[in-house]
Design a protein around this nucleic acid. Sequence first.
DNA 1: CCGTTTATGTAGTGATCGATACATAAACCA
DNA 2: TGGTTTATGTATCGATCACTACATAAACGG
Lengths: 200, 200
Amino acid sequence: MAERGRPRAFDRDLALRRAMEVFWTKGYDNASLADLTSAMGINSPSLYAAFGSKEALFNEAIVLYGKVEGPQIWDSLTSAPTAKEAISGYLRATAATFTQPGKPAGCMVILGVLNINDANEGVSRALRAIRAENREVLKQRLDEGIAAGELAADLDTAKVAAFYVTVQQGMSIQARDGANRETLLAIADSAMAAWEQLVG
Amino acid sequence: MAERGRPRAFDRDLALRRAMEVFWTKGYDNASLADLTSAMGINSPSLYAAFGSKEALFNEAIVLYGKVEGPQIWDSLTSAPTAKEAISGYLRATAATFTQPGKPAGCMVILGVLNINDANEGVSRALRAIRAENREVLKQRLDEGIAAGELAADLDTAKVAAFYVTVQQGMSIQARDGANRETLLAIADSAMAAWEQLVG
DNA sequence: CCGTTTATGTAGTGATCGATACATAAACCA
DNA sequence: TGGTTTATGTATCGATCACTACATAAACGG
């Protein structure tokens, strides 16, 4: 069963990747349709036919962002043998991911929308939900540390997770302000210096 | 020597305060002239006659913000007897300042502009300069700690200052995401848990 | 009173925003 | 071939953006 009608003349996946780069660089509000269509190499009717709207395009872009940039940040949470190494790996991978040559600095989930307005409300809510989910992932890794007998049973894992997520979000702003990888790694290590006190 | 011409019909200081609240709540880009004039109770020609432009109005607003909200955040840097208490007081005052009832959550200097575009470039640069200056203030307080013989002479004060500034910037995003004062205070204390390791 | 100066309210400016109407093009099936 | 379906390019939509031209109003000094 072949496709009906005139075939699409551009690569949808490639166009989505270009859109992701624009959103990552400029944020949702500052990425204009002109910016997007220019980077994607198409006209706006093609964009709307293929993706529906600017908001729907962003939603697809954020999923792609999670697939492309997420693994390197989150892998240590499952691969590291201890909770401490998991969190440390998460922060150090963040430092590396936020300062990749040729890619925008900082995190699209954190910087995509910060100041809410009528037009970006849906996108803003989606990003906030992802941030809350990420904090929950950290907490669950800490809870696993308790289950493994590695951490004290009465440890306030929500509090510790909130702290390390906060550091990561601060690192996003630092990256946008021009901090290099070495600086971000030092910040990550500084945050880990609190570990023994926090879990002890 | 009295003023010439028709006298201004509104309170300039009060109008500036209202503008500050709008900028603080919505950020520079999302604060439209309609938002501003509505909150200030004036028409746009009066705004331009009194303040010059949206950017000039923001510049005045950020100075006012520093005068109104700055002291409670920075006072401990001069009043606290030790460097540790100074930094701790700075973070705990931040937690309180970012969650004042009836005021916008988070910091206007951090959240005012994050995604740069053609229109906000000047404002963005100004805010980034303030953030860099704030980091320098922290560093200098730590340097004073060295001069007082309280901290080791070879302590990397720039690194420590960068860490605590990063935590504060993360707290701004947390506040925007709805974190309450208790949560922010716990984050501040968590950051201070790294202190002995960082300076030791 | 008159002339000057500054502020105000109305009503716009051109530019840009996200999103579309419409005619045409290019594929399919019968 | 003709009919259907989908994509494309042009050209634009109304809304909103920051900003201002202009006539009028309200104060001053003379």
